[in-house]
């Protein structure tokens, strides 16, 4: 019984949140890796692009709520997603046409494009602040829990409760569906293969008749879907605050690099590596050990390796360690 309690405790406070957070990071990391693989630069505007897409979902959610459209137990944000994605894609294609294209056509160095993306980041941040402001917003509605702690306790008779929030389930399901479609597209379709070919060897792709304009546009479209969906899932699960999205860039980049930058499947797994590391290192294990150890061995302290305030230090450390010892990423696999 004590063992089961300890297990449920761990599941409830670390594993389930880590899988959720990992899925959200994974979508961002695939975004980074895709832009890096096809357009060949590190996009520093990642966090803010996710924020930008989410902003539309938030505003549309408010609007839909005001006119009484909803989908019952599911959050309204889900039906706003297609509209938010379209707005996001338009914004990205606009930015590409007027900013990135110039540097791409003149074959600028990748570091120059990365600096340009820093500019895009600041502008995007400013636009977001003008439109929606910097405040913390919750836009989650519908049924909040799938499984409540009290129900679980009743069902099993354990001391510890297990909660499954509907946002956690939605995040995992949507991520699995989205990532499956993406990998199917990249690996099994003609267009996806041509995209990987372009990323691998641009000159030869041109000689094979692949149109670079189409590939670039397609990349932004896929990136727009990933950024908006990733951002909305994160916002539903936690809350929408633009500054937090900007901060999320570090774990997202860490995930992309851990997975081997340019490798989408690696980025996907990398998201979970970072999420699990962050949560396992910052969780206070006192109660866990209280269940498992005999009374005289019970810990007095919180048994927390690192305060949650330092969670970014975890992804930063992983980033540095990977770059030092396995700069090509810890996962084997095909590059985009």
């Amino acid at each position: 019984m004590e063992f089961l309690n300890a297990l449920v405790l761990l599941l409830n406070y670390t594993i389930i949140p880590a899988v959720t957070y990992g899925s959200q990071l994974a979508l961002g990391a695939i975004f980074v890796t895709l832009i890096y693989g096809v357009l060949r630069f590190a996009n520093f505007a990642t966090g803010d692009m996710m924020s930008f897409g989410t902003m539309f979902a938030v505003l549309l959610t408010y609007y839909f709520q005001s006119i009484g459209i909803g989908i019952g137990i599911l959050p309204t944000a889900l039906i706003t997603l297609p509209f938010a994605i379209i707005a996001m894609i338009f914004y990205m294609l606009f930015i590409d046409k007027f900013v990135f294209k110039y540097y791409r056509v003149s074959k600028s160095a990748p570091v120059q494009l990365a600096m340009v993306s820093v500019g895009v980041m600041f502008v995007t941040q400013a636009i977001i602040r003008i439109i929606i402001g910097p405040f913390d917003r919750r836009f989650m509605d519908g049924e909040k829990f799938i499984l409540k702690a009290s129900e679980f306790k009743e069902m099993t008779g354990l001391n510890e409760g297990l909660t499954i929030k509907s946002t956690q389930a939605i995040t995992v399901v949507v991520t699995i569906v989205l990532v499956s479609i993406l990998f199917w597209f990249l690996n099994k379709t003609k267009t996806g293969t041509s995209m990987r070919a372009y990323s691998d060897n641009e000159d030869l792709a041109l000689l094979s008749g692949i149109d670079p304009k189409k590939i670039v546009m397609l990349t932004w479209i896929i990136a727009g879907c990933l950024a908006t969906i990733g951002g909305v899932l994160y916002g539903l699960d936690k809350s929408y605050k633009p500054f937090v999205y900007f901060n999320n860039m570090l774990p997202i980049f860490a995930a992309a690099i851990v997975g081997g930058i340019g490798n989408p499947f690696g980025a996907f797994l990398g998201g979970y590596v970072i999420a699990f590391a962050e949560i396992f290192v910052t969780y206070a294990y006192k109660k866990f050990f209280t269940y498992l150890l005999p009374e005289f061995l019970e810990p007095d302290s919180l048994v927390q390796l690192l305060s949650t305030d330092y969670k970014f230090a975890v992804s930063f450390s992983i980033l540095v360690i990977v770059l030092l010892f396995r700069p090509s990423g810890i996962f084997e696999g095909k590059k985009i």
Partner: peptide
């Protein structure tokens, strides 16, 4: 045309290389 260097898609499989060759 077969260039002297970088004349294959090194990250793709043999079959995918052929498929991309027939892109048009």
């Amino acid at each position: 045309f077969v260039p002297q260097t970088k004349n294959v898609f090194a990250e793709l499989t043999v079959k995918e290389n052929l498929e991309v060759g027939a892109f048009l």
